[in-house]
């Protein structure tokens, strides 16, 4: 039996600024993980990644990251993605400064 596809999001870095961004269902980019488009179908996820990669003059290094679906939408599965969503642990810098995306 085929294993179920674990949900993904498309994430990248903003070209001009360098911060973490997430692809939205409206074909835009958000700085907040809860606004990311959740991709539950493998073929669709690959297609969305290709569409992201074509935006060379907007983003850098797009890839699919695994997420779990929580109460507030997508949640990181790997701790690396958790740091990307929040910022470093030694200073209150990065995304955690934004009240829309506090450190959980």
């Amino acid at each position: 039996m085929k294993r179920p596809y674990s949900p993904k999001i498309v994430t990248a870095s903003d070209l001009a600024v360098g911060d973490v961004i997430y692809q939205t269902a409206e074909d835009g980019w958000s700085r907040a993980l809860p606004e990311a488009e959740i991709l539950c179908d493998e073929a669709h996820a690959q297609l969305r990644l290709i569409e992201a990669e074509r935006q060379q003059n907007r983003i850098v290094g797009a890839y699919l990251a695994e997420v779990a679906i929580g109460e507030n939408g997508p949640e990181p599965v790997h701790f690396r993605e958790d740091f990307r969503r929040a910022g470093p642990s030694n200073y209150f810098h990065g995304k955690q400064e934004n009240p829309r995306q506090p450190r959980p």
Partner: peptide
């Protein structure tokens, strides 16, 4: 310039892209 073309140029000038920022 694509990122593949730009990356070696920025690295020659000490510029990396890290987890949260350049």
């Amino acid at each position: 310039l694509s990122e593949d073309e730009f990356k070696p140029l920025r690295l020659m000038n000490g510029l990396y892209l890290q987890l949260h920022a350049y």
